[in-house]
């Protein structure tokens, strides 16, 4: 790793202030992706602004609209244990990484990084969540802007994620066998006004909504409504672990399974 200092502010406003001191300062949340990246010397921050000491962005609650609101600094293990009101979300959190990773990695860190194979982006997009930052609310549909790209500005910090709770939902993950990230992960959520289907792991553009499936499922929420369907293979990731065609096929399979298993 290159040399850097670590600051551990206690409030969001202090963190934002520190981030604004230099373009070379970078926020550090759970660090489960950032630290391996730093080890490879792929990033050279001047200061890391650790968010792990900020109590106000940790925890899970319910707002007046019935949304599950998760502090950005909440680790995956705490979401898995504490988001019982949204079982599909809790189940997704329980599938990220491994137990030790889940005790450090955070929802805010995952969404800010927007790894194309990460699990959380599919939940946020599939639920139509709102990503709350230190200065605005961003709808999930506007937030994800391609692989590792988000609507966040420099120095902007996610503070909370608000998830509307669907009638039924399920996340189906087919793991990439080495990294155990999603080779394909599909989050299906059935709301009163329609179905959302978000896919991670598959596309070169990062997490995306499979709108054809959403339309079919909004009319008929059953796996058979998607019989034989899969998204086009064009633009799907093709690598050691599977071709674009295979990933496209898996999106169909995982979506049908998610519908079948949705609670």
């Amino acid at each position: 790793m290159y040399a850097f200092d670590i600051e551990r502010p206690a409030t969001v406003s202090d963190a934002v202030k520190l981030l604004k001191e230099s373009d070379e300062n970078q926020p550090l949340s759970g660090g489960q992706t950032l630290i391996p990246t730093l080890k490879q010397r792929l990033a050279a921050p001047e200061k890391l602004i650790s968010l792990t000491g900020i109590g106000e962005i940790k925890g899970i609650c319910e707002d007046d609209a019935g949304r599950i609101c998760i502090g950005a600094g909440t680790c995956h293990a705490d979401v898995a244990a504490g988001a019982g009101k949204y079982p599909a979300l809790a189940a997704l959190a329980a599938q990220i990484g491994d137990p030790a990773v889940r005790n450090r990695g955070t929802i805010g860190g995952s969404l800010a990084n927007n790894d194309p194979s990460a699990c959380y982006p599919s939940a946020a997009l599939g639920s139509g969540a709102v990503i709350v930052t230190n200065n605005r609310d961003i709808a999930a549909d506007d937030y994800f802007q391609g692989m590792f790209a988000t609507a966040l500005d420099e120095g902007e910090i996610i503070t909370e994620v608000k998830f509307p709770v669907p009638e039924k939902a399920c996340y189906m993950k087919f793991v990439q066998p080495a990294s155990r990230f999603a080779l394909v992960g599909v989050f299906v959520a059935k709301f009163a006004d329609g179905v959302r289907v978000a896919v991670t792991g598959a596309s070169e553009e990062g997490v995306f909504r499979w709108t054809e499936a959403e339309e079919k499922l909004s009319g008929d929420f059953s796996a058979s409504a998607l019989d034989g369907m899969s998204p086009p293979a064009d633009g799907m990731i093709s690598d050691l672990h599977g071709s674009g065609a295979y990933r496209a096929h898996l999106v169909g399979v995982m979506t049908r399974r998610a519908v079948d298993a949705a609670l």
């Binding site: 670590i6 489960q32 391996p36 491994d98 137990p99 030790a100 990773v101 450090r104």
Partner: peptide, 22 residues
């Protein structure tokens, strides 16, 4: 690999993926 797992405040974490300062 998990060879570095220790308990921090009672919970398992990977000691290679947390800074000492934290």
């Amino acid at each position: 690999c998990g060879a570095c797992v220790v308990h921090v405040d009672g919970k398992p974490v990977k000691a290679c993926t947390i800074f000492a300062a934290e």
